[in-house]
Write a protein that binds this DNA or RNA. Structure first.
Lengths: 145, 145
DNA sequence: TCGCCAGTGTCAATATCCTGACACTCGTTG
DNA sequence: CAACGAGTGTCAGGATATTGACACTGGCGA
């Protein structure tokens, strides 16, 4: 109950603060492109792994399948993604990016890179990889159950 | 567009992954106490700064005033907090913790400390403060606009 | 002094996300 | 071969968060 027990707890709020700020700044930059942060994350995951399924997409974004589904419907109506109408082997419909999405992502990646670069502007590159490694260790420790 | 530009972007998703996992683990531990993570965060901020206003509470939790208001109504109905009925100087109603909340927070802090301790179990204490300092620098860089 | 602006609390409407449930398909296991 | 669990997509309901708008009050500058 002393200061040593309280300090790790404040690491949790620090993570939340940083994530919320980063989300807000990304939203500011992505809004002119008519993209929300979840939409950008979805398109990016789709770019890294083409033909991925909707459920896998939901898992990576830490949302439910239903939410990812409505998000994909919006992207499909805008012509950014296309879902294969043929249900595939296990009733899954693969999703792929459209050319318009690739073009839009080029600009979006620039904006997001600008934000993240600004976030780490006060951290030397050597410390940057150290921060990444330490944080990754924290994430992995929470993965199991 | 090479690997150097992509690495900082992955730091952003790493922060989101860690925060989502931490949120999920905290929710698992707090659910038996009938507490959601936003409720716990609200009570904790109220414990650190008694008599705080609802709007300030919303700012610290990165939510709108309206959301914090309905959250406070739920806590008030459970007898965990009491809002002063006298509107104060600038129409604000100060919120204070009840004894039941202090008692509940004792157990909740134990659970949360357990989760955060487990998150940093693979990080030596010296590296832990380094992680905190580096992440705090990132957060501060995003604070300004 | 008067008007203006920032801050607060509140109401209404909207959007987003989640839980629960169902049907369908595959692989595995009895 | 039949039954079962796991994975996927979808529908409906409810909980939660946000945006927009309004009224009220204190401090500030014209």
């Amino acid at each position: 109950m002393d200061a040593l027990d309280r300090s790790p707890e404040s690491l949790g709020v620090l993570i939340k603060e940083t994530q919320s700020l980063l989300n807000q700044r990304m939203d500011d930059r992505l809004r002119p492109l008519a993209l929300s942060v979840p939409q950008y994350a979805c398109l990016t995951a789709l770019q890294d792994t083409p033909g991925i399924t909707s459920s896998e997409l939901a898992r990576r974004a830490f949302v439910s399948r239903q939410s990812m589904n409505v998000l994909l419907q919006g992207l499909e109506k805008r012509g950014l993604v296309t879902r294969s109408s043929d249900p595939g082997p296990r009733r899954e419909r693969s999703v792929v990016l459209n050319d318009a999405a690739e073009l839009l992502l080029e600009r979006a990646h620039e904006e997001v890179s600008s934000v993240v670069h600004r976030m780490t502007v006060e951290v030397e590159p050597v410390e940057r990889v150290r921060l990444y490694e330490l944080l990754a260790r924290c994430r992995d420790a929470l993965l199991i159950p």
